[in-house]
Design a protein around this nucleic acid. Structure first.
Lengths: 157, 157
DNA sequence: ATTGAAAGAGTCTCAGT
DNA sequence: ACTGAGACTCTTTCAAT
């Protein structure tokens, strides 16, 4: 596999380092990668402009702020062509944090974060049942997250 | 639902703002929330120490760095008690970026990011087949990510 | 494309409230 | 617990290479 864009080893090293900790300073990152802080700055600016880097997100302990339930919802559609409209409806439910159009066991696959199981049940029964195009859903509840990590990009070089 | 810890409205507002953009400055965030930058600083430090905030992660356009395939793998275990060992084995596969212990259609649920479908096939055939305790797997390939966003925390207040 | 230095902006601490 | 000010560090720009 070749990189489709002008991304070199240094870019990937920057992405790799910041994937696990985006708050590292340019100065420190430069020291780590044996270039100046100015170079790091230029590269990150370029990667932003190219759309390779989309931004930074806070990693939050969801349980600590009262969100106890993480679940996945496999969605079967009546017709694949209803995908766009169903996606639009699911976007309106703030607890649904991620949606993929999939092939395999399901037509669509969603991730949902709720305060408790009651909230999840309410969304499954009240909201999802009324979305035109959804045939049926299967709910997969996470009892424990074993791990969650960024892709290890270093080997690409 | 009550917050189990000492987290007030300001804390949640900070988390909410930084969930979508963790790179906002304390000064700007303070202006937005009508407190001083120093207060923002103290709060974020507290949230870190409490383990509410776990860190920041770069959001990367995976296709741009040569990762074309995102898939989910539903895993059926021979016995639930094999969970710990299977998790340990899956952790060794760098392309698997997330693993949950689940109830519902599967015993475990993984997320995997590969450079191409060949790499995915190789992992499914060579690596997963040889892990003791896995009965069978079901692969769900993402054709498109409709959306991915942080949980909307503001309403918790 | 990278560097080093200067200017500007932000962080972090702390005394005062 | 919050503020504002001072010391310090980091970002950002730019002339030179």
């Amino acid at each position: 596999m070749s990189q489709p864009l002008n991304i070199d080893k240094l870019d990937l090293q920057i992405i790799s380092e910041m994937s696990t900790d985006a708050s590292i300073s340019y100065a420190e990152l430069g020291k780590k990668l044996f270039v100046s802080g100015g170079t790091i700055h230029v590269r990150i600016k370029k990667l932003h402009e190219m759309g390779v880097i989309k931004g930074t997100r806070l990693q939050v302990n969801l349980r600590a702020i009262g969100y106890d339930v993480l679940a996945f919802i496999g969605i079967y559609l009546e017709k694949s062509s209803l995908y766009e409209n169903v996606a639009k409806q699911l976007l309106k439910i703030p607890q649904i944090v991620r949606l993929n159009y999939t092939t395999g066991s399901y037509s669509m696959f969603a991730e949902i974060i709720c305060k408790d199981s009651g909230e999840l049940r309410k969304i499954l029964q009240d909201d999802l049942q009324h979305i035109k195009g959804i045939e049926r859903t299967e709910t997969i509840i996470s009892l424990e997250e074993s791990f969650s990590r960024p892709i290890n990009v270093s080997e690409v070089v």
